[in-house]
């Protein structure tokens, strides 16, 4: 076995808010794990990078979206927020467009993530 695991759980988030429930239910898994004292990293890939955009609103029927949940991450000690840099570029976005401080990952750095966690959940 190689280096010690930096974290127990890697949650890969690949969807934005509102369109589906994947982001919400993925974040719920991350928050629960953190509440139980587990180390959690979030990796936003593909469309998932849009989850972090500023200025998101509730939907017309009062759908909550996920901004409020994302704002709670620090309270749960979830501070490793990883973002697929190529995906951000694909959407014409930069880290300055995002509501939280993140670490941008190259393709090579992403490939190292699943092996560096004890459990990987994709949403």
């Amino acid at each position: 076995m190689s280096a010690p695991f930096p974290s127990d759980l890697l949650v890969i988030l690949r969807h934005g808010s509102h369109g589906t429930n994947w982001l919400r239910e993925g974040l719920d898994a991350a928050l629960v794990a953190a509440a139980f004292g587990r180390g959690v990293s979030l990796l936003f890939m593909g469309e998932g990078v849009t989850a972090l955009l500023r200025d998101q609103q509730v939907g017309p029927l009062g759908q909550k979206g996920t901004s409020a949940t994302l704002e709670m991450l620090a309270m749960y000690d979830i501070e490793t927020l990883l973002v697929e840099e190529a995906a951000l570029e694909r959407f014409g976005l930069t880290a300055a467009d995002l509501m939280l401080p993140v670490r941008l990952l190259s393709a090579e750095a992403i490939a190292a993530q699943p092996g560096a966690h004890r459990l990987v959940l994709t949403f």
Partner: peptide, 11 residues
């Protein structure tokens, strides 16, 4: 059951 079960199971 709660979602915590999933995390426990996975680990």
């Amino acid at each position: 059951t709660g979602l915590g079960q999933l995390v426990d199971l996975g680990l």
